[in-house]
Amino acid sequence: MNWTWFHRLGSPPHIYRIAGTLTPWFAWPAGLLIVAALYGGLVLAPPDYQQGEGFRILYVHAPSAWLAVMIYGVMASAAAVGLIWRMKVAHAVAASCAGVGAWFTAVSLVTGMLWGKPMWGTYWVWDPRLTAQLILFILYLGYMGLRAGIDDLGRADRASAVLAIVGVVNIPIIRYSVEWWNSIHQAPSVMKMDRPSMPLDMLAPLLMMLLGFTLYFAAILLVRLRAEILRRERTASWIREVLR
């Protein structure tokens, strides 16, 4: 087995260069997909038979909610890799994730509330999804708070990595408990998003949005990662050559 690729993954100058070349390859398809999905979602898709035009909030709510959860997963995986193999670049990835994740968790909360008003008649219902998302937001805040609270970078990296892993073990339990709690206390009405069959002209823009947002996150992550690497490798001589 040839492991050089793995060792190169841990080499900051290598990653810095690769991230630079890859960024446009994620950014442009992401932009195109999102614009196309906007047209498909706002114009081409037919109004929903229950929610009318209001269901179109789905096309920004669902991708943000997906990013919020996915980014936490990426962050925890990177943190675990950094903790287990002592890979500095992995910690830089985890550090770059948190801010973006918190942003999109907030967006999913705000869009969920804006969707809730016409559907439930109130901006906030203790719906299990919204509640779990709110707890996720607090988890992100805690992660960033811990990182900011420890001065030594190596220690901040590892302590926050432990927290991210503890969080990722807990998130399914939290989601389950919140759903269980909700099933007992019966919220007034539950938003039905998981209908068995969504017509293709409704589903296609959603899938395009999900893919577009994922690629968008990848592009943002790469740019943030480059910044993070520069900041961490402050004394390295390779930076001098890169910045020519």
């Binding site: 708070g145 807990n170 939290i174």
Partner: peptide, 8 residues
């Protein structure tokens, strides 16, 4: 850090 983890 601990309050969200204590939700369940």
């Amino acid at each position: 850090l601990t309050l969200p983890l204590a939700v369940p």
